[in-house]
Design a protein around this nucleic acid. Sequence first.
DNA 1: CCCTTTTCACCTAGGTGGTAAGAT
DNA 2: ATCTTACCACCTAGGTGAAAAGGG
Lengths: 233, 233
Amino acid sequence: GWAGEGPGASGKNRRVCHAAARLEMGSLWEEFNRLGTEMIVTKAGRRMFPTFQVKLSGLDPLADYVLLMDFIPLDDKRYRWRWGDRGRGLDLGVLSPTPPCRYAFHSSSWLAAGRAEPAAPGRVHFHPDSPAKGAQWMRQIVSFDKLKLTNNLLDDNGHIILNSMHRYQPRFHVVLVDPRHDSERFAHQNFKSFSFPETQFMAVTAYQNHRITQLKIASNPFAKGFRDGDPEP
Amino acid sequence: GWAGEGPGASGKNRRVCHAAARLEMGSLWEEFNRLGTEMIVTKAGRRMFPTFQVKLSGLDPLADYVLLMDFIPLDDKRYRWRWGDRGRGLDLGVLSPTPPCRYAFHSSSWLAAGRAEPAAPGRVHFHPDSPAKGAQWMRQIVSFDKLKLTNNLLDDNGHIILNSMHRYQPRFHVVLVDPRHDSERFAHQNFKSFSFPETQFMAVTAYQNHRITQLKIASNPFAKGFRDGDPEP
DNA sequence: CCCTTTTCACCTAGGTGGTAAGAT
DNA sequence: ATCTTACCACCTAGGTGAAAAGGG
């Protein structure tokens, strides 16, 4: 899908106001989102899967841009996974709509369980090709496959720090590199942000929803070793 | 060792004139150079080994620089490898000083054999982190491990195109990113070049000197599968 | 009991020289 | 005869979830 700021967004620099971003692998993101996406966080840092990738358009080909991501807590709650009566049984159960995950596994589901942990100001991840010309960014899909998630509050590898059992919304930002020496004064005009609801997820240290595990195994090439039977091309 | 322009070099921008580069892994380069370094070229592109790496100093920490490499033909000759009487025998032969390779294998050696192929204007390889601040470049060793050599004249992967059986001298360039809009007029002042004689090599499609092969196997981690006996830590 | 950490087998991805076949 | 190409086994390097162990 396409996301961005509505027509009400004004006062933006003309080199960013027409920027647009299309989320790649949208159908895969939606498939995960229907089940309630989970992302593993580890001390050493873990990649996201699906990888956050966008196709950009509307940039000034000759202007310089920095691309970056951050992660916003979706609410102020801590969650826990509640196994239902048949939840530990076979993988055949009925899907039941239960917010915040729209569909839960069998009668299992996520339940709010207390207030969120106090979070330090969130880190950002700069795309390693930054800065680059608009033409370069628009030439092909921009992939954030170097981005890693960690639950280590003392991480010094520059990874994104998240609280396990909390929900997050990835955000994507296009920032114009302003050559003016007093560019700080225009900082608020020089960026445009994008937020794709289908990319929200629960941070976990181990998968809770077995359907998520199976979809990861089925779709992530690095998990091919856990696939069972007939492949689907 | 250190290389660069002598004290006679003048008229350079003050942000590049103090730049200095120290070749890393110098003793390994010299060990190869004593035998007559060979580098494999392939259609798909082949890395150099040893990798060209430098430690930089003397840059303006706050200025932007582009780092790049190119390869200069060392002469206008085409070479061929001449196997000596005992050249195909055991690996015990006497080393004989024979230019341009100072030491040859047994009685085998490189011989000039005609004029060089006409070469298209040489390509350059930009270090993928370019451009970056002087502080960033000086923080750690700069490694050109993404650079690949090819003998495919029609290569469209941006690799360095070389003629097999020809000798080359790698060159390294530090280029100041000049913010002046008429920077073209100062281009000749804004760069500094470095040339390390111990990094010169013969481009080949298959190794000729067996001692070079053995030294590659002994020192390149990716060739560990061909090592025989006791390792040396 | 619930969540986290560690270790592991099994993958992807790609860099080695050897070897035999191919090209001139 | 000399040089090049294609394929291969064998590596490095690192991304997977499973399983068991660890911690509060």
